[in-house]
Computed example of a mutant assay.
Amino acid sequence: MSWIILIVSGALEAVWAAALHRTSQVQGRARILPAALFLASVIASTAGLAIAMQSIPIGTAYAVWVGVGVVLTSVYAIVTKGERPTAPRLLLLSGIAVCVVGLKAVA
């Protein structure tokens, strides 16, 4: 169960990163929704990481949390045309994903 919580928490890291980016792109009252989403997702993401760390070693948990967040944030940026899906970028992101799976396999 801790691994599921950790993966969901990593996904929420991507949500708060995207929401934080959106707060800088809008003006006035329109900033309230992405700011609220940022706040809720950062709290949930960090809380999930803390829960997962009760049974997963700290280094492993943190690396997986960050890895999931990095890969999903980059996928979001590629899908929304914020970044170009170059071959080196996709190869390196795949490497991060493989390392996350590897950490699960050896933990």
Results as ranks from 00 to 15, higher is better:
V100W: 05
P34S: 06
L12A: 07
A36L: 15
L6S: 05
R29M: 11
W3Q: 09
T46S: 12
A44W: 09
A17P: 00
V8I: 15
L91V: 15
L33H: 05
V70E: 00
Q54L: 08
A63S: 10
L39P: 05
G28M: 12
A77M: 14
I51W: 12
V100E: 03
P34N: 04
W16N: 06
F38W: 13
R29E: 06
G28H: 10
S94M: 12
W3D: 07
L90T: 11
G28Q: 07
G82E: 13
A14W: 04
I51K: 03
G28I: 12
I56T: 05
M1R: 10
K81R: 15
A87V: 15
A19F: 06
C99N: 05
A107T: 13
W65T: 03
V70N: 01
I5Q: 06
S74L: 12
I4D: 00
A107L: 10
L92A: 13
W16F: 14
S2Q: 09
A52T: 04
A18L: 12
P88G: 10
V64D: 04
Q54T: 13
G59I: 11
T23M: 02
E83M: 08
L20V: 14
K81F: 07
W65F: 04
Q27I: 09
K81T: 09
L6V: 12
E13M: 09
I56E: 06
G102R: 13
A63K: 01
G59L: 11
G67R: 06
L93M: 13
S55K: 08
A105T: 09
